[in-house]
Amino acid sequence: MAEVEPIRDFEDVKRMYNWLKVHASPREAECWLIGCNLALRAGDLLQLKFSQMSENHVTIIEQKTGKKKQFPVNKEVRQALVRLLAYYKSKNFKPTYLFQSTSNRMKGQRKPICIQWLGKALKKASWDLELGYNVNTHTMRKTWGFQAYERGEDIHHIQALFNHATSKVTLRYIGVTKRTIENMYHTNALEIA
């Protein structure tokens, strides 16, 4: 099976959001946006509750590490939260989780959508948009890392955020491959003469 990839072209990140908004639901679109902004593992992302979200920070206990993590909530995430609440209100639904299941099969239970549900939506979007990336729920986290790196963020800062042991692991994780490095020779050619 091919390695899950980040979305490297930022226009494709936006196209994913717009496709999800139209063809899946606003909930999945905002999940994509928030996932690409918070860089959380999908299991932690889907467990987020509105009660955890302050205007400035969110605090979680990471499922994988068991460590407490507090991080800022940026403007994009705050705006997505407003849109999510409007979406639930339009369905006459009071959510507990950011990405609450609204299925009638839940029989009043308060549960978030599952990773498999979100993964299917992301794969369908990628397929329909003909992006050519191997996409799943981990793509959101990897996309954040790749986009941060492309914008000039120090790899060691990204490494610390992901809690990786080495920067080499982080580079491989965010999809900075031999091909990416070779392309740097072309995109950073110094036009001296």
Rank of each mutant, 00 (worst) to 15 (best):
Y88D: 03
K142G: 02
V135L: 00
S126Q: 07
Q79G: 08
E76G: 11
N74E: 10
C114W: 10
Y87D: 07
N74Y: 07
E150K: 08
C114K: 10
T102W: 03
F146M: 05
T102S: 04
R141S: 00
E55C: 10
S90A: 07
M53N: 07
L84V: 07
F93G: 03
F99V: 03
W127K: 14
S101I: 10
A86I: 12
V82P: 03
Y149E: 00
P95F: 11
V135M: 02
D154Y: 09
K68V: 08
Q52N: 13
M140G: 00
V77M: 11
N136S: 13
G152L: 06
T96M: 09
K68R: 12
V82A: 14
Y87F: 13
K67S: 08
S103I: 08
N92F: 02
N134H: 15
H57L: 14
T96S: 11
I61E: 15
A121C: 08
G152W: 01
Q70A: 08
A125H: 04
K67A: 12
G119A: 12
L84Q: 06
K67G: 05
K94F: 09
Y88K: 11
N134Y: 10
Q109D: 09
K67R: 12
A148I: 01
K111E: 10
K120H: 00
G132W: 06
S90E: 13
Q100S: 08
Q147K: 03
D154H: 09
M53P: 06
L85M: 15
G152Q: 04
R78V: 01
H57T: 13
V135W: 01
T139Q: 04
M106K: 14
F93S: 05
H138R: 02
F93T: 05
E130T: 04
G66E: 02
A80H: 06
D128F: 03
T65H: 04
W127T: 12
D128A: 09
S101M: 09
Y133A: 07
Y88A: 10
S101L: 08
L81H: 07
I60R: 13
A80N: 01
P95W: 10
P95N: 14
A121Y: 00
Q70L: 07
E150V: 01
R78C: 07
N136T: 05
F99P: 06
S126D: 05
T139Y: 00
Y87W: 15
R110A: 15
E130R: 07
H156E: 09
F71I: 02
Q63T: 07
I60H: 14
D128Q: 10
T96R: 14
Q63E: 12
V77A: 12
T137W: 00
F93P: 04
K124H: 03
F146C: 01
R78N: 15
Q100Y: 05
E153L: 15
H156R: 15
M106C: 14
M106W: 08
Q109T: 12
N134C: 11
C114E: 05
L118G: 02
K123I: 06
R83H: 09
V82I: 15
K120P: 02
L98E: 04
L131I: 01
Y133N: 03
